[in-house]
């Protein structure tokens, strides 16, 4: 194999144009729709957000230039900025690993050879299809401390009852628990990834006397690392921007215990009409997410293996 590959390289270089240059041209050609789209539709609004963050602007009237005053206020006198950052980070730390592990588990379960597999797959994806506004009341009932189903299950088991989303110390774990229900999309991506695991490798493990755990440990997980990586990055980015669940179910309460960052930012923009401040908050969010994503990318070389790029 190595031989063929190096022969190919030689052949390319012999055609005169430097391989690097030609790759740059092809690369830009293929990615040009996204690059052009970025400059047409994303670049402007991002620049606008940066610009607006340096002003005081009530959505109407002319923005008034105030330099870094919004940022200064956020970092020095805003008591809710740190609160919302910590709420969001704690929730992300709770929810992301749990939902990725759960989605992976479901995907493996749905990759078995069992009857009615399409039916099961569809069922597991259902919570992602039903509009949240329709099922939110169901969750309010499940979480109810006095009459809800969750405490009704817990009570006979002798476990301590919880006030779930109605107490400041349990609201975030409760919302994280709820997020497990909506892992259908992540599960689907894992399922697609599992289709690419060569079945012969499992047979090889079986020949060596390996069990299910060995297959998982030595075949499935290593081959799936690019997909796990994708889900990890995207779930993190999306979780850091959690909005709908607190907006519909807790409105940030009790006592700001579920004041998620984007909920806070949304209030600034559309309830207080303070777009300058909201823009500054979102630039900070962009930086936070950017740094976290960068760290994940940098550490990915330690644990993500691209089968196609084993050099």
């Amino acid at each position: 194999m190595e031989n063929v590959a190096s022969k190919g390289r030689v052949a390319q270089e012999q055609r005169g144009l430097s391989r690097k240059q030609r790759n740059l041209l092809w690369g830009l050609l293929f990615t040009s729709p996204a690059i052009i789209g970025f400059f047409l539709w994303q670049f402007g609004p991002i620049m606008a957000a940066i610009g607006i963050s340096l002003t005081e602007w009530k959505i109407v009237g002319t923005p008034e230039w105030i330099g870094l005053a919004n940022y200064q206020k956020i970092f020095t006198t805003d008591p809710l900025f740190l609160k919302s950052v910590s709420v969001t980070l704690i929730y992300t730390a709770l929810s992301v690993p749990a939902s990725i592990a759960f989605a992976f588990f479901l995907a493996v379960l749905l990759d078995q050879k069992v009857r009615l597999l399409p039916v099961f797959r569809t069922i597991f994806y259902l919570p992602s299809i039903v509009p949240f506004i329709a099922s939110s009341y169901l969750w309010l009932w499940l979480f109810n401390p006095d009459f809800g189903a969750l405490n009704a299950i817990i009570r006979p088991l002798g476990l301590p009852e919880s006030k779930w989303i109605f107490a400041s110390d349990s609201v975030l774990p409760s919302l994280a628990l709820m997020s497990l229900w909506g892992v259908g999309g992540t599960m689907l991506i894992f399922l697609a990834g599992l289709q690419g695991v060569p079945k012969q490798l499992y047979e090889a493990v079986e020949v060596d006397g390996g069990n299910v755990w060995h297959k998982m440990r030595h075949v499935t997980i290593p081959i799936m690392t690019p997909v796990i990586f994708f889900n990890f990055v995207l779930t993190t980015i999306n979780t850091l921007q959690t909005f709908t669940q607190p907006f519909v179910m807790t409105q940030g309460g009790p006592n700001n215990a579920s004041l998620f960052y984007v909920l806070y930012l949304y209030r600034k923009a559309f309830r207080q009409s303070d777009m300058g401040y909201a823009s500054a908050l979102s630039i900070i969010l962009l930086l936070i997410i950017g740094v976290l994503t960068y760290i994940i990318f940098r550490t990915s070389s330690l644990w993500v293996f691209y089968e196609g790029e084993r050099d």
């Binding site: 400041s168 309460g253 006592n255 209030r267 207080q272």
Partner: peptide
């Protein structure tokens, strides 16, 4: 003036904490 911010950030959460029996 500044009703939404005062209610959302100062008064609302405190009243909520009182009625949730947390304060």
């Amino acid at each position: 003036k500044n009703w939404p911010q005062i209610m959302d950030e100062a008064i609302g959460p405190a009243i909520e904490a009182i009625f949730a029996d947390e304060m």
